[in-house]
Design a protein around this nucleic acid. Structure first.
Length: 249
DNA sequence: AACTCGACCAACCGCGATAAT
DNA sequence: GATTATCGCGGTTGGTCGAGT
């Protein structure tokens, strides 16, 4: 039985204070990343290593972009999700400056809904009659039965009188369903296959628009370091298997 | 102004994979 | 080869904020 990593009573939990952030930043600037187990004590933090690692990777890293997702990025996430499923770290690895957590959150809060609005099942990227439009988006069990998880906010609600709000924030942008259909069919096929193709090469490149500022959470002059590349255990090359992705435009 | 609801996102948790012993 | 420690990932939760009523 593995003992919980953060079971110590005197460990801090919850939101990080600025002082804690600074301690972590200072320590990593001096000693670099790694050895998360011993880092908290060495850095004078009452946090477990896991928590430190998460804080650094998801929030403090100097190369994080931390802004709205560009359309290119949205498209890429959707494409990659069609190919890879919920392998967020792999997807994030193709989006410089984005973290798996960020991509995952963005998918769950924006892109999933966007696809549903377009009548696309976000789980398999196929045109779905189950998601003809938002009008059927209620908290009834139908979405769950189709494998679509309800957003946790739906679970949060204690009252039953849930109003259909139908106000997609993403605007829907019309969307080219035909193209999605082509891709989703092909992509879902790929997805099916991808599980049996663990060595799928995903060396996909993206031209991030120059309008995206390379700003960071801490606007000092630290040089961006791309940790993502090392995150992917298997070097993969998307281009070699993804003619269908081009249809997505 | 107060309350409710929905959305967002940082952080936590549990587990599998991998490295070290 | 078995066991233990650590890392990394994906799913989930909880807090906060803004919009609507």
């Amino acid at each position: 039985m593995r003992k919980p990593c953060c079971d110590k009573q005197d460990m801090n939990k919850g939101a990080w204070s600025k002082q804690e952030d600074q301690k972590l930043i200072d320590y990593i600037k001096k000693h670099g990343e790694g050895c998360w187990r011993t880092l908290p004590q060495a850095a004078g933090l009452l946090r477990c290593g896991k928590s430190c690692r998460l804080r650094w990777i998801n929030y403090l890293r100097p190369d994080l972009k931390r802004g709205n997702f560009a359309e290119d990025e949205e498209d890429l996430i959707i494409k990659l999700h069609a190919l890879l499923g919920n392998r967020w770290s792999l997807i994030a690895g193709r989006l410089p400056g984005r973290t798996d957590n960020e991509v995952k959150n963005y998918w769950n809060s924006h892109l999933r809904r966007k696809l549903i609005n377009m009548g696309i099942d976000p789980n398999n990227h196929r045109l779905s009659h189950k998601f003809p439009s938002l009008q059927n988006q209620t908290t009834s069990g139908s979405s769950e039965s189709s494998g679509l998880k309800l957003p946790k906010d739906a679970k949060k609600k204690k009252k039953n009188n849930i109003k259909p709000t139908n106000k997609p924030k993403t605007g829907g942008s019309g969307g080219d369903i035909n193209n999605y259909e082509q891709v989703s069919d092909a992509a879902s096929g790929l997805e099916d296959e991808s599980s049996s193709l663990p060595d799928l090469n995903l060396d996909l490149t993206i031209n991030i628009p120059s309008t995206i500022p390379a700003s960071s959470a801490y606007e000092d002059d630290q040089k961006p370091i791309h940790h993502h590349e090392s995150k992917s255990p298997r070097p993969t090359q998307l281009a070699s298997c993804s003619p269908t992705l081009l249809l997505f435009q």
